[in-house]
Structures are given as structure tokens and as C-alpha cells.
Amino acid sequence: MALLLVAGLVTAALGDVPDTLIILLVVTVNTVIGVVQEVRADAAIAALDRMAAPMARVVRDGRDRLVPAVDLVRGDHVRLEAGDVVPADLELTEAQRATFDESALTGESAPAHRAAAEPAGAGTVLADGRAAGTVTATGPASALGRIADLVARTGEGGPYHAE
């Protein structure tokens, strides 16, 4: 970008108006594309944050408790009912007709059936049935957290960032 600006200054100093205008047009288009990509990346990160479950039903001290999902730790036992967002990566310990909408992670539109001992990713939704599982990863270590990190890095000069 800096090289284009210097080239624009040189062509302007030499009085080459058509080349100067073309260089300025290229700089402007490149800047607009960069800003649009940055805005889209920020929107994607915000959407991923909104998809994270704000509360979770956890069994602690032998009792069901409703706790903020950010307070979950590895080893917590989480209970899910139809419509619940999975608050962290889980290894299912119970699954009764458990069907998960995994489109947030995989892009697949068809719900996936899960059984006990199978994983359920953070940000997915229990579409039908009931399930319970043990937390295996939370926050940035979860599948959804890794996706959010990749999107954030792409927006901050990653391989697809326009300069």
C-alpha cells in the first residue's frame, strides 16, 4: 500500500495525471475491500459470541444448578434439554433421542444423532431429546472458541486479510 502511495506521488510530481488517477483508484478500492473484510470479521466474531450459551444446568454438590456458562470448568456435569445451546465441548454420558444441530461448527444443515460417549461441540444446539455430558473444553479451547480465534486472526492480518 505504501509503495502504491509513493508511486502515486511520483507520478503526480511528473505530471502523469492518468497514471496518478489509476494508482489512487487502486489504493481506494484496496482500502474499501480491507474495511469491508474487517467489518465482516467483526460481525462474525460477534455472532459467535452471541451463539455461546449464557447459562448452563450443572450438577454440583449433587444438585442441579443454573450457572453462567463462563464459569464451567473441565469435569463439570452438564444437563441439556431440547433447545439448549451446548455451553462447552462435552463428552456425552447420557443421550436419549439426542439430535444436535451442528451447523454452527460444521455447516451441515441436517441434525446429527449422538449417543453416550460421543462428543457434543460448544455452540451446537440440542434439537431433540435429552442429554448430559462432562465438560472437556471451555472458552477458547472449545471447538467454537477455535473457530472464533481463526476468524479473529483472519481479520487481523491473517492469510485472507487484504492489505
Rank of each mutant, 00 (worst) to 15 (best):
L126P: 03
V58K: 03
L21D: 01
E38T: 06
V70Y: 02
D84L: 03
T134S: 12
P68K: 05
I147Q: 03
R79Y: 04
L126D: 03
V35P: 01
A98V: 08
P68H: 05
F100L: 15
A143H: 12
D49M: 10
L144H: 00
G62K: 07
L80Q: 10
P111H: 10
I22E: 12
V78Y: 05
A152W: 01
G123M: 09
V27H: 01
L150Y: 00
P18D: 12
G123V: 10
L21W: 07
P111R: 07
P18Q: 13
L3H: 14
R74T: 15
V58W: 00
Q37M: 08
I45E: 07
A12N: 02
R146N: 07
L126T: 06
H77S: 12
H113W: 05
L21S: 09
V32M: 12
G139S: 12
V135T: 01
G15F: 02
D128E: 10
P18K: 13
L80K: 09
A152L: 04
I22G: 13
V70C: 07
A43L: 11
L3Y: 09
I23Y: 01
A69M: 09
R146M: 09
R60V: 04
A115G: 11
L66M: 15
A104I: 12
M55T: 13
V67P: 00
V6T: 08
A115L: 08
L126W: 02
P18R: 11
H161W: 10
A98W: 04
A112H: 11
R97W: 02
V135H: 02
A112F: 07
M55D: 08
D49I: 03
I22Q: 10
A95H: 04
P140E: 14
A112V: 14
V67R: 02
H161Q: 08
I147W: 04
P119T: 06
V10A: 13
A110F: 06
E163N: 14
G158C: 07
T99I: 01
L25G: 15
V73M: 09
Q96V: 14
D84Y: 04
A112T: 14
V73N: 04
E38W: 13
G129T: 05
S103F: 05
T11Q: 11
G62H: 09
A127F: 06
A117M: 05
E91M: 13
M55F: 10
D16I: 07
R74D: 15
A117Y: 04
G8D: 00
